[in-house]
């Protein structure tokens, strides 16, 4: 009987202690962000959508050496078509990309970068296949990304 009473008292005390700890949280600042209105600050190394850089005069840095294609874990994700020395077509299927960053590290010229863009939802899979025009950044933007690394 006394045991039972002791047990009950200690249970009540412990639950009260737990509740007091939970109550403390009422007076703390919320840590969540109201996402679509407020966006998180992303780190300098964030791995988002892939993009191609250009020289200040607008020409491609990419030589079409296919190194990115060979280190990519998703087979045939990056497709490059060359015409002579010029890179004619450069397509990346962002829908299948796993954002591992292997290609940007392997690129000998530093032509491929990962931007901070992460809102990539779209209505169909076909629109997620980015061609060279969609991937290439303007010379001004390229300068910004070059200075990052």
């Amino acid at each position: 009987m006394i045991n039972q009473i002791n047990k009950t008292i200690s249970a009540v005390v412990e639950i009260a202690r737990g509740m007091a700890t939970i109550m403390k949280h009422f007076f703390r600042e919320p840590i969540t962000l109201e996402y679509p209105e407020k966006k998180p600050e992303l780190g300098e190394r964030y791995r988002g959508r892939l993009a191609l850089l250009t020289n200040p005069d607008g020409s491609d840095i990419c030589l079409g050496c296919m190194t990115c294609q060979k280190v990519c874990p998703c087979v045939d994700l990056i497709q490059i078509e060359k015409e002579g020395k010029e890179v004619k077509e450069f397509t990346i299927d962002i829908g299948r990309c796993i954002f591992c960053g292997n290609c940007t590290e392997a690129c000998p010229k530093g032509a491929l970068v990962m931007t901070k863009e992460f809102e990539l939802a779209d209505y169909s899979r076909n629109t997620l296949v980015y061609d060279k025009k969609a991937l290439t950044l303007s010379p001004e933007e390229s300068e910004k990304w070059k200075s990052r690394t």
Binding site: G43, E44, R45, Y46, R47, I98, F99, C100, E105, M114
Partner: peptide, 24 residues
């Protein structure tokens, strides 16, 4: 981790013979 490696879950940070980047 995001600041260090660039992503929150799939880090891909180690490489053969070391790590890819130093602490920021």
């Amino acid at each position: 981790f995001e600041e260090l490696t660039g992503q929150r879950m799939m880090y891909n940070f180690y490489t053969f013979g070391g790590v890819k980047k130093d602490f920021p």
